[in-house]
């Protein structure tokens, strides 16, 4: 089975700190593979010959090498200054063009959502541009046979088992298991593996379809939620114990 796995590099949200002006402190913030996408890679590698694809800056190459170490056979980086500041629609359009250049596939695997934006839109957008059936909220792939993929979906009100005709696109949630750690040999192989880089011209995309110009949405302004917690530091155990005791006696907000 030929599989494309679409992944995204995100800032490690565990590390984010904010400045007084509501901008992110970028220094020292590490980039990681989006957590759901780690499971997308695992799913793709388990089912067949997986190619990892991302749209991102040149540094995203590192993430793609990790995807190769995790078992992907190939990696493609869609990178161009013109892709910058794309919203989900322009991103999906770019990914769709990138995947079409790679030829036929049986399955596209995406993560359900990314931890930075959490829109969960790029997967379904991409499925539309590729005219593929989509299955979102996939918790587990049950089987692939006779041209169909059967999966378990985890929804708020319960669990669905659905069957989709291949080729299809699935969006996977984080699994309940720790993803496999690559062996040292895999990491060495990944360092020597080839990451194919494609720009807007390679994909035959015009400026009006991609990046900032191809994005119908834009952020007009942003603001931080103010927390109602007073952030008072205490110096002694007695004060700390008193604060705990006081809170214990208090009522719970409904």
């Amino acid at each position: 089975m030929k599989i494309f796995v679409c992944i995204k590099q995100v800032p490690d949200t565990g590390d984010i700190k904010w400045t007084e002006n509501n901008t992110m402190v970028r220094e020292g913030v590490e980039s990681i593979t989006n957590p759901c996408d780690v499971y997308a890679i695992e799913t793709g590698v388990k089912l067949g010959m997986a190619t990892a694809v991302t749209m991102g800056p040149p540094q995203a190459e590192n993430m793609l090498r990790n995807a190769i170490a995790a078992g992907c056979k190939n990696a493609v980086l869609l990178s161009d200054k013109k892709f910058a500041a794309a919203d989900t629609l322009a991103t999906a359009r770019t990914l769709a063009a990138g995947l079409k250049k790679l030829g036929h596939c049986d399955l596209v695997v995406c993560g359900q959502y990314a931890t930075d934006g959490d829109t969960a839109q790029t997967g379904p957008n991409l499925a539309n541009f590729l005219d593929l059936p989509q299955v979102t909220y996939v918790k587990e792939v049950l089987n692939v046979e006779n041209g169909y993929i059967t999966v378990k979906r985890e929804l708020d009100r319960g669990t669905e088992t659905v069957r989709a005709k291949l080729p299809a696109l699935i969006c996977v949630l984080e699994g309940d298991f720790e993803p496999k750690r690559p062996l040292i040999n895999d990491t060495i192989r990944a360092q020597n593996g080839q990451v194919i880089v494609r720009n807007a011209d390679d994909l035959g995309l015009s400026e009006h379809e991609i990046g900032i110009k191809g994005s119908p949405t834009y952020v007009n302004r942003s603001f931080r939620m103010t927390t109602s917690h007073e952030a008072r530091m205490v110096e002694t155990i007695d004060e700390l114990a008193e604060a705990i005791n006081e809170a214990k006696r208090g009522e719970r907000d409904e």
């Binding site: 919203d87 989900t88 629609l89 999906a92 934006g117 959490d118 829109t119 969960a120 839109q121 790029t122 997967g123 379904p124 957008n125 499925a127 539309n128 541009f129 989509q134 979102t136 909220y137 929804l155 708020d156 009100r157 994005s215 119908p216 949405t217």
Partner: peptide
């Protein structure tokens, strides 16, 4: 913005080539 809506909305938006703000 339920599971169903988050599955449906991006599909509609991209078919219309319009923007969608999530959640």
């Amino acid at each position: 913005a339920t599971n169903q809506g988050r599955d449906l909305a991006p599909r509609i938006a991209s078919a219309l080539n319009t923007g969608l703000t999530a959640d």
